[in-house]
């Protein structure tokens, strides 16, 4: 249970970081870098979430015998 809360805060942290970076880069005029960092952040979070989703679906398959 504890490690899961970490995941929540990791995702929130990355989200806020990416939002701040986006805003800073935009105000500094480098619009394209802003989008790249946003995409990078979203990709990292997506990897974590999909990994968790994989474990969830495996557990559902094993418990509900959904083969």
């Amino acid at each position: 249970m504890g490690s899961d809360v970490n995941l929540i805060f990791k995702i929130a942290g990355v989200g806020i970081l990416v939002a701040a970076a986006h805003w800073v880069l935009k105000s500094a005029g480098k619009e394209d870098y802003a989008f790249i960092t946003t995409l990078g952040g979203v990709a990292v979070v997506l990897v974590w979430v999909i990994y968790q989703l994989g474990t969830l679906f495996d557990q559902v398959k094993s418990v509900f015998k959904l083969f």
Partner: peptide
Amino acid sequence: RPEMAIMLSMA
């Protein structure tokens, strides 16, 4: 960052 919010709710 709306996409992050969706990720968060999914997680």
